[in-house]
Write a protein that binds this DNA or RNA. Structure first.
Lengths: 134, 134
DNA sequence: CCAATATATGCAATTTTTTACATATAGTCA
DNA sequence: TGACTATATGTAAAAAATTGCATATATTGG
């Protein structure tokens, strides 16, 4: 019961739902700085939200150098059911904008790894512009 | 988004999950006094929890005299998905005891209507004993 | 070792939720 | 009408969650 309550509490927050949506829709593993840019939220907000979701048992992590890649924990059957359910109900304009920003951010990966850390939005947009025009 | 958050917040409470479980597992409409006995909780707690769930759009009500029958609102597709999901994950010993007490309480219905209001537990158990022995 | 960087966390102020009680409302029946 | 009963709600105190900032940790590369 405590476990179930912890999961629903984790889902009762806009930032955390936006994060979950990005993982569910993209099907990818993502690091904190990529989420920061997709959500346009500060580092501590994203880290804290991810921590809550991981504590609730919804995510696993893999560390590569200073980067940490989060991914949905789909080993648990109940989690899989949850992600399927969320995939059906998380449909909002706000989410679409997150998804577009994430797609652009992922253009900057090399060998499927994040190589761009925390940089000013202005610089980020220039990098992305370079990629889309190439 | 606000609507989704309201639903998850409604699900983030033990009493409200226990109530939802009883409706999902029994498939019936139930009134406040029946839930009080199944959950062993005071009237105001049950009423308030039902109010929260109804506000979140998960229940509809039908009034018959002073009795109010609550039922799951299955017209909404998202609600149906949610109830299916909950049916899979709400499995706990605590729920089993609730379900047994509810089944006993429902033995006291006549023509599928609740005819026993708020009475002391001692009296309730006597009534139920009468029914099960008959 | 040092500087730089990606991520995590501790904390205090604020906001939100819960809880328990008292009381209100509304319908029934004498 | 008035007593009775099923249900709803207002409220104040307590508990819990969120927010923003500052700072800590840990890894890399020079």
């Amino acid at each position: 019961m405590e476990k179930i309550l912890e999961i629903f509490k984790a889902l009762s927050d806009e930032t955390r739902l936006r994060i979950l949506n990005l993982f569910i829709k993209s099907g990818r593993n993502l690091c904190v700085c990529e989420l920061m840019d997709a959500l346009k939220l500060p580092q501590y907000t994203v880290s804290k939200a991810l921590g809550t979701l991981k504590n609730a048992g919804l995510f696993t992590t893999e560390k590569e150098g200073t980067w940490v890649y989060y991914q949905l924990d789909k080993k648990d059957t109940k989690n899989k059911d949850l992600f399927t359910f969320l995939n059906n109900i998380l449909i909002t304009d706000l989410f679409l904008e997150d998804e577009e920003r994430l797609n652009n951010r992922l253009l900057l990966r090399e060998n499927d790894k994040c190589v761009v850390g925390i940089i000013p939005e202005e610089d980020l947009l220039k990098l992305i512009k370079g990629k889309t025009e190439a």
